[in-house]
Amino acid sequence: MSMNSHHVDPPERLPVVAFEDRMATVEFRVGQRAHIVVDSDVCRSCTTQACVTACPANLFAPTSDGGILFNYEQCFECGTCYMVCNSQGALTWSYPDGGHGVVFRKG
């Protein structure tokens, strides 16, 4: 931009990080056992489905029949989902077996 321009630069175009690329930066030592289990039948009658937007790893996918499809493999073990879940019995939440799950390098 020339020195006598009358405007500041337009807002910067930042790299858009695709969600898969974002999650690919995290190390997971995936265990055999699903440490979180979601009962999709309970989710079908859930009025908030708050887990869908709140989970930082985006692991709760709404299904066409109003339920939830969940995969435990790329989980931060943060606890947000059980904190926001408003339906008894929808989530069975535990930590992965010792040594498994997320491993942060720059936490």
């Binding site: 999650m23 995290v26 942060f104």
Partner: peptide, 21 residues
């Protein structure tokens, strides 16, 4: 993307994403 923050991050690479309560 904020104008006060964006210039400091120009050209940087994402190394890790993380979450905790």
């Amino acid at each position: 993307a904020h104008p006060a923050i964006a210039p400091g991050l120009r050209g940087a690479d994402l190394k890790e994403y993380a979450a905790h309560l």
